[in-house]
Amino acid sequence: MTRPPLRWLHPHRAALLALLAVLPALLLVFTSGDSSSAHGTPMQPASRTFMCWRDGLSSTGEIKPINPACKAAVAESGTTPLYNWFSVLRSDGAGRTEGFIPDGQLCSGGNTTFSGFNKARNDWPLTHLTSGASLDFSYNAWAAHPGWFYVYVTKNGFDPTATFGWDDLEDQPFLTVDHPSVTGQVGTVEGAYKWKGTLPSGKSGRHIIYMVWQRSDSNETFYSCSDVVFDGGKGEVTGVGDPGDTSTEPPTDPTATCTATRRTTGSWSGGYQAEVTVKNTGANPILGWMVDFALPAGQKVDSVWNGSATYSGQEVMVHNTDWNGSLAAGASTTFGYVASGGPPDTATAPPCTVH
């Protein structure tokens, strides 16, 4: 089976990329509330990472999975993937599927952080569905960005205990969604892309619904596995400890910490250039970070590199880019900026937050 790169399905994307190419490379200015990296995952039907996060929620804020498949995933990959249930992504994906993501790694998108979720088992949490019925799909928008959603399903006779590969999927998506809008508050569980779609007909028993979210403003691409059973259900969930939990914020990983150190690398009358070093000071890898600082009155940032900035008055929030958000324990990265309107800021350690 030959599965072309998804970008081939949209000829107008070339025109969009040509337009983006003429934008200044270093001036990364976004409207307030935007984010450099998209984040999200299916909530209906729910992905493995979302289901296992829900399964493991505890009153203390720790994640302690009950479902055996979720426990096995944590045994291999730790709990960090559950605190980052919305981050199964490849920053270099560019919408690619077969030939890019190896067989046996579809559920992690080839991202080694989530390798425990590739396990071939028949006890993952399940969503119960009816073949050929209409379903209200929901895809979390932890950080929203425009793009396309491609929804595949496995072929009849799929065996959940065998290695999951591209030949197990139907050749074409049964549903394609073009740049849906976001409802609810971005950055919470309620913030989501929503659409109504018809489930494939002629399906029964266990299957995987496989989704690919391809951003149209970046190469960043998300991959997910949602375990389902076509048994006449209407979206009910089984196999999780507390499917009815209504928490709007994922718990914070107590071991996920970072620091930021700023230094001036050049100055002149009315302006300066600064470099900020971000370091993962936690015990586990992190998938993203944000540095927040305030400029003195009258100053503004003219350009940013190796980071993406949002602004609110004098407040500046710099998020990681697609390529420097993932940091191993103890690893560091840098971003820089040029500011005008005054002398260098004397604050050398702005706050850093893991996300």
Rank of each mutant, 00 (worst) to 15 (best):
D167G: 05
D168E: 08
Q172P: 01
Q172W: 14
T176N: 12
D178M: 06
P180G: 03
P180Y: 00
P180S: 02
T183Q: 05
T183H: 05
T183N: 03
T183A: 01
G184K: 00
Q185T: 15
V186P: 05
T188E: 09
T188C: 10
V189W: 07
V189C: 04
E190K: 01
E190L: 00
A192K: 08
A192C: 07
Y193T: 04
W195H: 07
W195V: 08
K196C: 01
K196W: 03
G197C: 08
T198V: 12
S201I: 07
G202E: 13
K203H: 15
G205R: 08
R206W: 03
H207Y: 14
Y210I: 00
Y210W: 08
Y210P: 03
V212K: 02
V212N: 02
W213I: 02
W213C: 01
Q214V: 10
S216M: 09
N219W: 10
Y223C: 06
S224F: 02
C225G: 04
S226Q: 05
V229Q: 02
F230T: 02
F230Y: 15
G233E: 13
K234F: 05
E236Y: 07
E236P: 03
E236S: 14
V237C: 06
T238H: 06
G239D: 11
V240K: 03
P243C: 13
P243E: 09
G244M: 09
T246L: 15
S247Q: 14
T252H: 08
D253P: 03
P254S: 01
A260Y: 01
A260T: 05
R263I: 10
T265Y: 04
G266R: 00
S267L: 05
S269N: 14
G271L: 12
G271R: 06
Y272I: 02
Y272F: 15
N280K: 09
N280F: 10
G282N: 08
N284H: 06
N284I: 04
M290V: 15
F293D: 14
A294N: 13
L295C: 07
G298D: 10
G298N: 15
V301T: 13
D302G: 11
V304I: 13
N306F: 13
S308A: 14
